[in-house]
């Protein structure tokens, strides 16, 4: 049985996750399986449907931003989807790359708020908080992205659109190489059948990781990591009583995520060199001197 203080921590981290992320696995699965009362996502499977989606989804997401929560709009210079519209004159691959950046920036903002709500995180040295986010956000982002993916494609624009895997593969290189490794990871990761409560603890464990380069107070971060990992282990045992190897299998995914991020950073570096495209300042900060 799980001690009472562990149960409290599970609830706090799960609540922080549900509060801070606009999309979660339960919502995404409802949309992907067609079990929602909302309109079906607009399917983007070629350049024509992509261009149509740029016009309709941008308007839709913007309307939602103005009417909805301001939670994720802390960086005043970023409005996802608007970027896509403003860059319409540029070629499709580059525009898609910019849309991905806007979504990434939004998720990094949400992840920061989530991290701040993890008990103990804000007591860490501010430099260490920066380090943990710098190295953790992309691993966390690809974990969360898996919830929006199935073998055929990925949900975008808060579930308003669905980009097919085949369309992403058909883009010119290097853009075509961008998403396929994420789909492969997502297929393996989704077979673990985690729910949002499991994912919330896993994402917290990714962020609070004691072996990131340049940490000032390693023992304090390790102590926080140890607490979260123990809570994750106990939570998995109670939440998945018939899958006793889930915890070790999940820990193995941490290594896969590191590899995925290293590959991704290299690809972004290549795109920066060979394409006439810009990188958002927040993402520049994260990638700079990363690995």
């Amino acid at each position: 049985p799980m001690p009472a203080d562990h149960k409290v921590l599970v609830r706090q981290i799960h609540d922080a996750y549900m509060k801070n992320f606009t999309m979660n696995k339960a919502k995404a699965r409802l949309i992907l399986t067609g079990k929602t009362s909302k309109p079906q996502p607009f399917i983007i499977h070629n350049m024509e449907t992509f261009q149509l989606a740029e016009k309709t989804l941008a308007a839709h997401v913007l309307a939602e931003h103005h009417g909805g929560s301001e939670n994720s709009l802390h960086i005043g210079d970023v409005v996802p989807a608007l970027g896509c519209g403003m860059l319409r004159q540029r070629e499709a691959e580059a525009r898609l790359f910019h849309c991905c950046q806007s979504t990434s920036v939004e998720t990094v903002t949400e992840l920061t708020e989530f991290a701040k709500a993890v008990p103990g995180f804000q007591s860490l040295d501010l430099n260490d908080q920066v380090t943990l986010l710098k190295y953790g956000v992309y691993e966390a982002l690809f974990t969360l992205l898996a919830s929006c993916m199935n073998k055929d494609g990925v949900l975008v624009a808060r579930g308003g659109g669905f980009i097919t895997r085949e369309f992403l593969k058909s883009l010119r290189r290097p853009f075509s190489d961008m998403m396929e490794p994420k789909f492969q990871f997502a297929t393996r990761f989704n077979s673990l059948e985690l729910d949002d409560s499991d994912l919330s603890l896993f994402v917290a464990a990714i962020i609070c990781c004691g072996d990131r380069p340049g940490l000032v107070d390693v023992p304090l971060v390790e102590q926080l990591q140890e607490t979260i990992v123990q809570v994750l282990r106990l939570h998995l045992l109670t939440n998945h009583p018939n899958d006793s190897f889930l915890f070790p299998r999940l820990l193995q995914k941490l290594a896969d995520l590191r590899e995925l991020v290293t590959e991704h950073a290299q690809l972004v570096e290549d795109i920066k060199k060979t394409e006439d495209t810009s990188l958002h300042p927040l993402l520049q900060e994260i990638y700079r001197d990363m690995y």
């Binding site: 301001e70 920066v130 380090t131 927040l282 900060e285």
Partner: peptide, 20 residues
């Protein structure tokens, strides 16, 4: 480190919507 990561730093220092 915070100097080289001004936006991350700012996001961390911003008062969280959860605090209010």
């Amino acid at each position: 480190l915070t100097e080289r990561h001004k936006i991350l730093h700012r996001l961390l220092q911003d008062s969280s919507p959860n605090d209010s």
